[in-house]
């Protein structure tokens, strides 16, 4: 496979609070390739957003402390880049859109001002030159009468429109990577579909790689090429989307999939849920963080922390990665179920 455009090695983020150190992200490594969509799923608090904020140096410090062996982006290592240079990459080569378009736009500045400043900053354009490009950018994301919308205030737009503005803003500099942090969570279901379609369409046109952060497995299934699952600040499984959905190799992934309601499910059947609560990240016990909630947990699981390791899926013979000691057993069970 070609060299990845973004490669993260051992990224950790901790927050030092008076009540102890919170390990929000613990030794996360992943790669992102040209033009692909990588889904990052997990419950809230699993560290998926913080991981991406940390890449761009957006974790507030103090209390946040970011450590990484390497964050290679093209020729550069973002982990050691001085803040001013990292800033030149943000919004330019790597852009981000956030969960809540209601609060992510500054209510005291016009939409136009918030768009043009990106081009003024990264391209050195004058405000009037930037306006033309921004209007075109708004048109690209399907906003009618883009010229007029430039003078609108954020509160005059609907939620869906605002998220389109956010996307237009992120894509103004034609970034190579777009990090979309729960881009549809705060929106109505019909608008959700439109926004996802828009993202897919834009990706096709511009070849942008997307990191899609979400807790909605449905969104991931439709959009992502590969999926990484996070739990308690660690990656617990990484696989191609269809492999993951077909044969999860981690009990947590399995639990997540089982808790998704489906149309063809039995309506009288109670929806499965994962028992217990996500762990408190302040004093994480040794061993697998999922062990207390895991039906397969053994003493070995509690003894040491399992790492994300390669497993060969016996059915497809594809190499996959899972942080479960029993991954192979799970795989074999899937194989058994499938042959039955």
């Amino acid at each position: 496979m070609a060299t990845p455009m973004l490669s993260v090695r051992d990224l950790s983020v901790r927050f030092d609070t008076p009540h102890g150190s919170v390990r929000a992200v613990d030794g996360v490594s992943f790669e992102l390739h040209e033009g692909e969509t990588l889904g990052l799923v997990g419950e809230s608090g699993s560290g998926k957003s913080v991981t991406n904020l940390a890449l761009l140096g957006l974790v507030p410090s103090p209390p946040g402390v970011v450590e990484a062996r390497e964050v290679r982006f093209g020729e550069r290592d973002l982990a050691t880049l001085p803040p001013a240079e990292l800033r030149r990459i943000r919004g330019n080569e790597i852009a981000m859109i956030f969960q809540d378009p209601m609060t992510s736009l500054n209510p005291l500045l016009t939409v136009g001002r918030q768009l043009t400043e990106v081009l003024e900053e990264h391209r050195g354009l004058s405000r009037s030159e930037a306006r033309t490009l921004c209007a075109r950018g708004l048109g690209d994301v399907g906003i009618p009468e883009p010229e007029a919308r430039l003078d609108a205030w954020p509160h005059e737009l609907s939620g869906g429109m605002r998220q389109r503005v956010m996307i237009a803003m992120a894509l103004l500099c034609r970034p190579r990577v777009l990090i979309a942090d729960e881009p549809t969570t705060a929106l109505d279901v019909t608008i959700q579909a439109q926004i996802l379609e828009l993202l897919a369409d834009l990706q096709e046109r511009h070849g942008t790689a997307i990191v899609l952060i979400t807790h909605d497995l449905g969104v991931v299934a439709g959009m992502a090429d590969r999926v990484h699952v996070m739990y308690a600040g660690r990656l617990v499984e990484a696989a191609r989307t269809d492999d993951l959905f077909g044969r999860p190799l981690h009990p947590y992934t399995e639990g997540l999939l089982a808790s998704v309601p489906s149309f063809d499910g039995d309506p009288t059947q109670a929806l499965a849920s994962i028992p217990g609560q996500p762990p408190d990240l302040v004093d994480l016990p040794p061993g697998c963080a999922f062990a207390p909630r895991c039906p397969l947990a053994s003493d070995a699981c509690r003894a040491r922390t399992p790492l994300l390791e390669e497993v060969t899926d016996p059915r497809s013979s594809r190499r996959r990665r899972s942080a479960c000691l029993d991954a192979l057993a799970l795989a074999e069970r899937h194989a058994g179920e499938a042959s039955r």
């Binding site: 001013a84 990459i89 956030f98 500054n106 209510p107 900053e121």
Partner: peptide, 26 residues
């Protein structure tokens, strides 16, 4: 602490611009 300040940082604006243009007014 507002989200839109995070957005402004994510856009790659220099800290001074974030402060003067985005934060002070509010």
């Amino acid at each position: 602490s507002q989200d839109y300040i995070r957005t402004a940082h994510a856009k790659g604006l220099p800290p001074r611009t974030v402060l003067l243009r985005h934060a002070i007014k509010g």
